[in-house]
Computed example of a mutant assay.
Amino acid sequence: MPRERSFSEPEVLDRLTDVFSTHGYAGTSLALLQEATGLGKQSLYNTFGDKQSMYLQAIDCAVQRGAGVTAAMQSAAEGREALALFFDAMVRNCASADPAQRSCIVTGGLLEGVDEPPLAWALTARWQATHELLRSVVERGQRDGSIANQAPSAELAELLIALVSGLRVAARAGRGRAQMERLAALTLGVLDMA
């Protein structure tokens, strides 16, 4: 009869996600994963599969962490307000003292050049989903009048998603919260240009 697990899979997956977010795919060793989770190699592999499988699950976990912000955006009265909520959360995370919060597994993986097909596909799909979220919110704001800029929503979303990456890099480069807030405000100001 198999032994019962004496750990919480969701808690361990959270820790795996933190390690991959902080160190990247290539920079994450089995030793780092074991240290962060307190589990041995066999327990990790039996529960989550190989490193590639762990990384894929960590990507999904990281996306789930943002579900509350997405829900708040959908509840916002106007498109411009929804974008402000998104970037407020982004700046808050980037300014965090926690290295895992300052980092983004998707942005980091794309910058790192993870090219194993299932991983590259998952990273690109999540990036595209964020682009689509921003594009749809820009369109919503253009319709409700809270966004004056009538440039194509896909192009404005490209600018906004570039800000996402820029904030993550700025955080890694040691920029403070006030600097990142100004960068976000300047970029979002483009939406107010008629």
Score class of each variant (00 low, 15 high):
1 M>D: 09
3 R>S: 12
5 R>K: 14
5 R>F: 07
6 S>N: 14
13 L>Y: 09
14 D>A: 15
16 L>A: 00
17 T>Q: 13
18 D>H: 12
23 H>W: 11
27 G>S: 02
28 T>E: 07
30 L>F: 13
32 L>K: 14
33 L>K: 00
36 A>S: 06
38 G>C: 09
40 G>K: 10
41 K>Y: 13
41 K>L: 10
43 S>P: 01
43 S>T: 12
45 Y>H: 14
51 K>P: 08
52 Q>S: 12
55 Y>S: 07
56 L>F: 08
60 D>V: 01
60 D>A: 14
60 D>P: 08
61 C>Q: 15
62 A>Y: 03
65 R>S: 04
67 A>I: 08
67 A>R: 12
68 G>W: 08
69 V>F: 03
69 V>M: 05
76 A>K: 03
76 A>T: 03
77 A>L: 11
79 G>C: 03
81 E>A: 15
82 A>N: 03
83 L>S: 08
85 L>G: 01
86 F>M: 07
86 F>C: 07
87 F>L: 04
92 R>T: 13
92 R>G: 10
97 A>Y: 08
99 P>T: 11
102 R>K: 14
102 R>H: 06
103 S>W: 03
104 C>Y: 02
105 I>H: 00
106 V>W: 06
106 V>E: 08
107 T>G: 14
111 L>N: 12
112 E>C: 06
114 V>C: 04
114 V>T: 09
117 P>K: 03
118 P>K: 04
119 L>C: 07
121 W>Q: 15
122 A>F: 04
126 R>W: 04
127 W>G: 06
133 L>W: 01
133 L>I: 02
134 L>N: 04
136 S>Y: 11
142 Q>P: 04
143 R>S: 05
145 G>F: 06
149 N>Y: 02
149 N>A: 05
150 Q>F: 01
151 A>D: 15
156 L>S: 05
159 L>E: 03
159 L>N: 03
162 A>D: 14
164 V>T: 13
166 G>R: 09
167 L>F: 02
167 L>S: 00
168 R>Q: 11
168 R>I: 12
176 G>K: 03
179 Q>G: 12
179 Q>D: 13
181 E>D: 13
184 A>H: 05
186 L>A: 15
190 V>T: 12
192 D>A: 15
193 M>W: 11
